[in-house]
């Protein structure tokens, strides 16, 4: 795919690119990156544990609609919508808050691989319609959640600041 050269490459389009990038010396880079990587690992463990806990509390039988993964992904997308608006437009948060919560917890909580494998299993098990419905439902729920959450948060912040 060819994308046009961006004029907004430094925009925080993704949660990591605006983190400090010290490229002077490797050692310096590691000194700056070490705490960030540690926070991402810690957050990832918290998020993945929460996802595993959800799958224990709401188990889904093989061949049935994977509601638990759908809800986990939708909730994670709603929370990142709120979080990113707060952290980029409202608070000047500590530099480790975003690696811990955005990249770590929410990234570890939500999952794309289980989503894809859920669809593969439904299709392979002869439930192609359910697979297709799950594919579309997760996409719609996730994108609607992040958009709604970000929009409502912005409105609330603007309303409070008036």
């Amino acid at each position: 795919m060819t994308a046009p050269r961006s004029t907004t490459t430094n925009e925080p389009t993704d949660p990591y690119v605006d983190l400090p990038v010290p490229d002077q010396r490797k050692q310096q880079s590691w000194r700056a990156q070490g705490p960030i990587v540690a926070m991402v690992a810690l957050g990832g463990a918290v998020g993945a544990s929460a996802r595993y806990g959800a799958s224990m509390v709401w188990p889904v039988a093989a061949g049935s609609f994977p509601w638990t993964t759908l809800w986990v992904n939708a909730v994670g997308c709603a929370v990142i919508g709120v979080f990113m608006v707060l952290i980029t437009e409202v608070w000047a948060a500590h530099r480790l808050v975003r690696p811990f919560f955005g990249t770590g917890v929410l990234g570890g909580f939500t999952t794309f691989s289980t989503y894809a494998l859920d669809i593969q299993k439904l299709v392979a098990g002869g439930h192609s319609r359910a697979g297709l419905a799950y594919l579309a439902a997760t996409l719609c729920a996730a994108l609607a959640a992040v958009w709604l959450a970000a929009t409502v948060t912005r409105r609330l912040v603007a309303w409070r600041q008036r």
Partner: peptide
């Protein structure tokens, strides 16, 4: 599960 992410995917799309 931790390597892949749906939240960043949908946020970047937004």
């Amino acid at each position: 599960g931790a390597l892949t992410t749906y939240s960043t995917f949908s946020y970047e799309t937004l």
